[in-house]
């Protein structure tokens, strides 16, 4: 009881990460539609982004922003580093998605299908 509850109550962010990445992975492997595979990939990436962001969260922490005139919260700040990183990672992720979608467009133009099985037959693998 206590272990599970404990996990659910205090580590729910990890749980979400695991679930999300599991969903993403599953979509990538199991789904036959290429676009949905890419969506799966995005979900998977998002899970990891989430992981970063939530680990940076500090209970009751303020954003690490100093306002002019020395204002702003004194107390604990949330770690700004992961947020910066993930901002970059999101950019990378978006560009990846763009490339992936461009490829899919091309594949569709070429073969007229986005179904993986059908594609496999067409390409003769």
């Amino acid at each position: 009881m206590s272990a599970v509850t404990d996990l659910l109550l205090t580590r729910y962010n990890y749980l979400a990460v695991v679930v999300l990445s599991g969903i993403g992975m599953y979509m990538m492997i199991e789904n036959r539609n290429l676009v949905k595979k890419v969506i799966g990939m995005n979900v998977f990436q998002t899970a990891i982004f989430l992981f970063f962001i939530t680990t940076a969260y500090v209970e009751g922490g303020a954003p690490a922003i100093l306002e002019s005139g020395g204002g702003g919260g004194g107390g604990p700040y949330v770690s700004p580093l992961p947020q910066v990183l993930i901002l970059t990672a999101i950019v990378v992720g978006v560009s990846l998605t763009a490339v992936a979608l461009a490829l899919i467009v091309r594949i569709y133009a070429e073969y007229g299908t986005l179904d993986e099985e059908a594609l496999r037959e067409v390409t003769g693998e």
Binding site: M25, M28, L34, K37, V38, M41, F44, Q45, G93, L96, V99, A100, L103, I104, R106, I107, E110, Y111, L119, T123
Partner: peptide, 16 residues
Amino acid sequence: GLAAVAALKYLMLGTV
């Protein structure tokens, strides 16, 4: 078109 398929495969696995 095979190149696009291969690139997509590469992209997905590479991204993972």
